[in-house]
Amino acid sequence: MGQALLQLIPLALAAALSSVPITATIFILLSESRSRSGLGFLVGTLLGTFATVALAAVAGQALPGRPREHDALVGKVEVAIGSALVLLGVVTLARRSRAGSGSGPSWLDRIGTFGTLSVFGIGLALNLRPKAILLAAAAGLAIVGADLAFRDNLGLVVFYTVIATCTVGVPIVATILFPRRMEPRLLSAKGWIAAHSTTVGAAMMILIGGFVVGVGLSS
């Protein structure tokens, strides 16, 4: 299990540092309905992350072949996923440099006005972004590669989910408990994210993609 944990940690951190869910969280928490909408968004994010990784692990178990052939196929899929992450990171950096600082998607500016059910659905849907799917697929393959019992696999899925969603969960819980203390921090984070998060996220994708490729080649 130790090897699987070491593979999951960088993948989960890359998911946690994704700019879109963090930005959505901040906009929700700066709105008037931050408690209800924040909890709805958190639950959607948790369930979506858990489901995508669990499905990826199940799909990895279903790959055909004998044990050695299965391991080789898992390695090839990991190389493909890692290469896709690197390519996605490079494309993101290229778009960022052409567009300048820019701004996020227009719906992010309005997310604070959405209802609880809507932000719950958005939390689920954000796990269908290409980056989220690739990271979940790599995590699922890392879990499959460890060849553990069902209970251990479930624990690894929960472990990934907790780390990957911590940048959504921690601010939401902290803001509900300490709203006055958190508001200036949220405003400061909003400015920093607008300026730097895309570049940081793209660089993380390139690094993590290279890591996944290396894991796949060593399988």
Rank of each mutant, 00 (worst) to 15 (best):
M182V: 11
I172C: 11
R180K: 15
V90T: 05
L93Q: 03
P171E: 08
L187T: 12
G145C: 01
V91L: 13
L128N: 00
T167H: 05
G201Y: 02
W107V: 11
W107N: 09
I143E: 01
I193H: 10
V74T: 15
G121V: 05
A189P: 04
A138H: 02
I81T: 14
G104W: 09
A149H: 09
I81K: 09
G75N: 11
G100P: 11
L93R: 05
G191R: 14
V158Y: 07
S106I: 10
L87Y: 02
Y160T: 03
I143K: 03
L87P: 01
L93K: 04
S197Q: 09
R110M: 10
V86I: 13
G209Q: 11
G102E: 10
A164R: 02
A125Y: 00
A137H: 00
V168T: 15
P105N: 13
V74D: 09
V79L: 08
A80Q: 07
G209H: 06
L135N: 04
V77P: 06
R95G: 03
V91W: 03
R95A: 03
T198A: 07
T165L: 10
H196W: 08
V119K: 09
A195W: 04
L108C: 07
I176D: 08
L73F: 14
P179E: 13
V74P: 11
P130I: 07
G155E: 07
L108S: 08
I193E: 10
T92V: 05
F178D: 14
V157E: 08
A202L: 00
L87K: 03
R181K: 12
L73H: 14
T116F: 03
T116A: 15
G102D: 12
A80R: 04
G112Q: 13
T199W: 00
V86R: 01
L73I: 11
V77C: 13
Y160V: 01
L128V: 01
I111S: 10
D109G: 11
A138S: 06
L87M: 13
V119C: 06
M182C: 12
G112T: 12
V77T: 14
L126T: 01
G82Y: 05
R96Q: 07
A146Q: 08
V212P: 11
R95K: 13
A194D: 08
R96C: 02
S106H: 14
L88C: 01
L134E: 00
L85D: 00
L156Y: 09
G210K: 12
R185E: 15
R95M: 04
L85H: 03
L85W: 02
I206V: 15
R180I: 06
I206P: 04
T175K: 15
G209F: 10
A132D: 00
G169M: 08
P105E: 14
L135H: 09
A138I: 04
M204P: 02
P184Y: 12
R98Y: 06
G191L: 08
G102Y: 04
L88W: 04
A94H: 05
M204V: 12
G201I: 00
V170K: 08
L108G: 06
V212F: 13
A164Q: 03
A195H: 07
L156D: 06
R185W: 15
F150T: 11
V170Q: 07
R180F: 09
Y160E: 00
A94S: 12
L156H: 05
S188N: 10
L156M: 15
N153L: 03
G123D: 05
G201T: 08
L141V: 02
A202Q: 01
S83F: 14
G123M: 06
A189T: 08
L87T: 02
L177E: 14
A94V: 11
T199F: 00
